[in-house]
């Protein structure tokens, strides 16, 4: 059971994520978009969307810090467990709640604004359920451990396990002792990863950072059309008058 949940399942989810992204990119570049609904409704989106997106970006940074950077490193540069914990809980709670509030605003808007609701597909609805579940579960686990309980240092257990996935020597044993709240959050998160390529969330992978460095105006040559065969010898196009200085 442990192996299934903490080895097979995560690898499967990540494989689906990677494979799904490649597949989607190859076969559905046209569908790869934010499908923004701002045209329908702006005044609520103006609050909800930045709140959610900036919140989620902070949450992402927090997760990277917490899961990928070993505890020994932060301690080596003199950050005590207590300091780290305080900081993480403080920033994490702000980020988590702005994500949650932003998402609540966005979901309410989606349901209550006629045109936006009409433009919502089944796929979107399913995606919202999974996404909301991951966020709520994560926040719930954290808050419960830190407010009700005496705090839980996931950097001792979850983080090494997560890193071990990437070393290709997964260690499911440490996960057995992790509180159920965190376990469910992690399972839901991997479900989200697997679902990701098949939803509108793919737009996250095309975050346009290249914009910062490219010149403003892009020039491109007329591409050969799809389906046009390349020039074959003897067929240089429609007949033309011979011109002398054509080179």
């Amino acid at each position: 059971m442990n192996v299934l949940l903490w080895v097979v399942y995560p690898y499967l989810a990540m494989a689906v994520l990677a494979g799904g992204l490649i597949w989607r990119y190859r076969y559905d570049k046209f569908g790869w978009t934010t499908r923004s609904s701002q045209l329908y409704e702006t005044s609520v989106l103006r609050w909800g969307s930045p709140l959610f997106h900036f919140g989620v970006l902070m949450v992402l940074i927090g997760h990277i810090g917490g899961l990928l950077i070993p505890k020994s490193w932060t301690e080596a540069v003199g950050i005590t467990e207590h300091a780290y914990h305080l900081m993480a809980v403080f920033i994490g709670t702000i980020a988590g709640f702005s994500t949650l509030i932003g998402m609540a605003i966005l979901i309410a808007r989606r349901r209550l604004t006629g045109p936006v609701f009409a433009a919502t597909t089944k796929n979107d609805k399913a995606m919202y359920v999974v996404l909301a579940a991951v966020i709520v579960l994560g926040l719930w686990a954290t808050v419960r451990a830190n407010v009700a309980g005496e705090g839980y240092d996931y950097r001792e257990t979850v983080a090494p396990w997560f890193r071990s996935l990437f070393y290709l020597s997964p260690d499911p044993e440490v996960m057995a002792g992790v509180p159920v709240g965190f376990q469910i959050h992690i399972i839901a998160a991997f479900a989200l990863f697997a679902f990701w390529p098949f939803t509108r969330l793919v737009h996250a992978f095309s975050a346009p950072v290249g914009y910062l460095t490219r010149p403003y105006v892009v020039y491109r040559s007329r591409d050969p059309r799809p389906g046009l065969r390349p020039t074959r010898p003897g067929w240089e196009g429609p007949p033309q008058l011979p011109t002398r200085n054509r080179d």
Binding site: W32, T33, P208, R220, S221
Partner: peptide, 23 residues
């Protein structure tokens, strides 16, 4: 995303529908 480009040959400005991400 750099999806909008000016064609070098005739200056026509187009949106590459496969690169537009709806920003």
């Amino acid at each position: 995303s750099g999806a909008i480009y000016k064609r070098a040959e005739d200056g026509i400005v187009l949106v590459d529908q496969d690169r537009c991400r709806g920003w």
